[in-house]
Design a protein around this nucleic acid. Structure first.
Lengths: 201, 201
DNA sequence: GTCTATAGAAGGATAGAC
DNA sequence: GTCTATCCTTCTATAGAC
């Protein structure tokens, strides 16, 4: 924790995570070798095993810390939001888009590499994903209870909204024709259509 | 073409596609070996090379024929639809859901294994995907022109609708709590919300 | 903390017998 | 049409030098 930040080991540990994230996202976990990762980090393959017990733990650590960051970030943001479901929904849409667009590689891994996790690891990540979905579902149910949203199935609406928002990651490019602000506004409009809310902010 | 259907070679060719589809979807292209596929087919690894020049062609063939089937199926259905954009949208939503839920493994591969295609193959599949997106976009643009839909960006709406519908594949289970008919209806309602159409069928 | 070297397993693809 | 056998490459992970 309070170690010298200049320590070469800490830098290598960080570099390893960055390199693995980039390579796993580009080519897939199974297609990337420890040698490739080592080359990207700038060390020999053997040296990586000072920082991870094996390739599987490396994948799990990346996915687990990503999901934890996501849950923590939304908890922090949700805590200071007003009770109004429509305001919370707007905040969620903007939060989800911004958070995910800043971590395109990590998000890709978290969605695509589930099948390459050992079963215990799989269960852990799945529970985190479900916790996130539950936040959304609670928000929608709440809005329905207050008569602000109209939904025939809040579980399906949760899936639908998350899939629609996360789908942005598959086509977004940094120098694209639309700014993140504009994207947020357009998608917010579509999500409002889904929940059939007629409230204007 | 007009060969005896009892021919062992034709059966093996079919079995190979079935086995590869199943295994690639479960574990990923890179994680599956030709030996595993052969075992699933019930032959030795060497025999597979009578039916595919290499592993890459096998992947490409699966993806290419899946996408072609999709395009052909929608062409056939769209041909006999009325001009009314709302009716066409409803037909599309139902078509997309039904088509994709019947081919969960193939759809998964078509989305997840793009990065494992050689560059020429990648371009071919990407063009097919774009052709499909263009059908949807044209339908939305048409509805907007006729004043039936309200969309601030028909390209983003296309992405959003496809992502939302295809997302069903990630949670759908055959013996789940909802029938395909119910799912179609709920998602159609949400898609109508996105395009803000108020027309009732 | 990193390197070189290597053990041991598994991969894709081919050759030739049947 | 399929099998057995095998070539050659590449992989993960470890051991021991520096």
């Amino acid at each position: 924790m309070a170690r010298k930040t200049g320590s070469s080991g800490e830098k290598t540990a960080r570099d390893l995570r960055v390199a693995a994230t980039k390579l796993f996202a580009s080519h897939g976990y199974a297609a990337v070798s420890m040698r490739q990762i080592a080359a990207e980090v700038g060390v020999q393959a053997g040296a990586l095993y000072l920082y991870t017990t094996d390739k599987q733990s490396l994948l799990f650590d990346l996915m687990h810390s990503h999901m934890q960051e996501l849950l923590d970030a939304w908890d922090a943001e949700a805590k200071v939001l007003p009770d109004c479901p429509d305001k919370r929904l707007e905040a969620f849409v903007r939060f989800h888009i911004r958070f995910h667009l800043k971590r395109i590689d990590a998000v890709f891994i978290a969605y695509m590499e589930l099948r390459n996790l050992d079963s215990g690891n799989f269960d852990t990540i799945t529970a985190q994903r479900q916790a996130y979905e539950n936040h959304v579902k609670a928000m929608l149910t709440d809005g329905c209870a207050q008569g602000l949203f109209t939904l025939s199935d809040s579980k399906l609406a949760t899936y639908a909204i998350i899939a629609l928002l996360t789908g942005i990651n598959t086509w977004y490019r940094d120098a694209g024709r639309l700014s993140v602000d504009v994207i947020e506004n357009v998608y917010l409009e579509m999500v409002r259509g889904i929940v059939s809310t007629t409230i204007k902010s």
